[in-house]
């Protein structure tokens, strides 16, 4: 009986101790929260520095505007599979596209190469504009199908796969057409950006060579 009481008292003391520590922790937390934002952030400027700061802000704003792409440019959201043609801040055209599947292809024999089918992200430019493009099938296209890789270039050429137009943005990546329009809006490609016929035609006609492409 006595031992039981001692144990209950010890448990109660431990519980109270825990509550006290937790209370102290919350007090410290509240003190830290009340000190936010930290001193010195957003400190006001002295009157004599005001014109200098105003000028500096204006210059920085001008510089920021100067960084924006000139004329029409393309923005591609790989997560939403959307392509936007923009002019300044205005969206001129929106298209549903298909971007990279993120699948990894591994070559079991031979050179044991590996390909990751991602649409590259970053800032690019339109490097080429091609009408009635042919697809020069790369090695991975044959490996993926379990076929042997041909030696001659003529065996790699496939017509009609890329649609009527293609805009190249480097390293073999293109914005091009597709036969699989039902899959627009999904991540299914090997890295290129597939666009529906009507959108592709409009984009091809509107966007000039050298236009910026932002893929994120």
């Amino acid at each position: 009986m006595f031992v039981k009481r001692i144990l209950i008292a010890a448990a109660a003391l431990a519980y109270l101790g825990f509550l006290a520590v937790l209370g102290a922790a919350y007090l410290i937390g509240l003190k830290q929260a009340s000190a936010w934002p930290p001193a010195g952030v957003g400190r006001a400027i002295g009157d004599k520095d005001l014109p200098k700061v105003e000028k500096n802000v204006q210059q920085l704003e001008k510089r920021m505007i100067g960084l924006l792409p000139k004329g029409l440019y393309i923005v591609i959201d790989t997560a939403e599979n959307r392509l936007y043609v923009k002019n300044g801040k205005d969206v001129v055209r929106t298209a549903v596209v298909s971007c990279g599947s993120g699948v990894v292809l591994e070559e079991s024999g031979g050179k044991q190469r590996k390909w990751v089918f991602d649409t590259p992200r970053g800032e690019f430019i339109v490097k080429s504009k091609i009408t009635n493009p042919y697809w020069v099938k790369p090695d991975w296209a044959f490996i993926e199908e379990g076929e042997s890789i041909p030696k001659g270039l003529e065996d790699r050429i496939e017509a009609g796969t890329l649609g009527d137009y293609a805009l190249g943005f480097g390293q073999g990546y293109f914005i091009h057409g597709t036969l699989y329009t039902r899959l627009l809006g999904r991540n299914v490609t090997h890295g290129c950006v597939r666009v529906g016929d009507e959108d592709l035609k409009a984009i091809f006609k509107a966007v000039p060579m050298g236009a910026k492409i932002y893929i994120y």
């Binding site: 952030v41 957003g42 400190r43 006001a44 400027i45 005001l50 700061v53 105003e54 500096n56 802000v57 920085l60 704003e61 510089r63 920021m64």
Partner: peptide, 16 residues
């Protein structure tokens, strides 16, 4: 206004 301007300058500098 001055505090806002100082904040704006800091954020513009950081962003640029």
């Amino acid at each position: 206004d001055k505090t806002d301007l100082a904040k704006k300058q800091n954020s513009l500098n950081a962003e640029y």
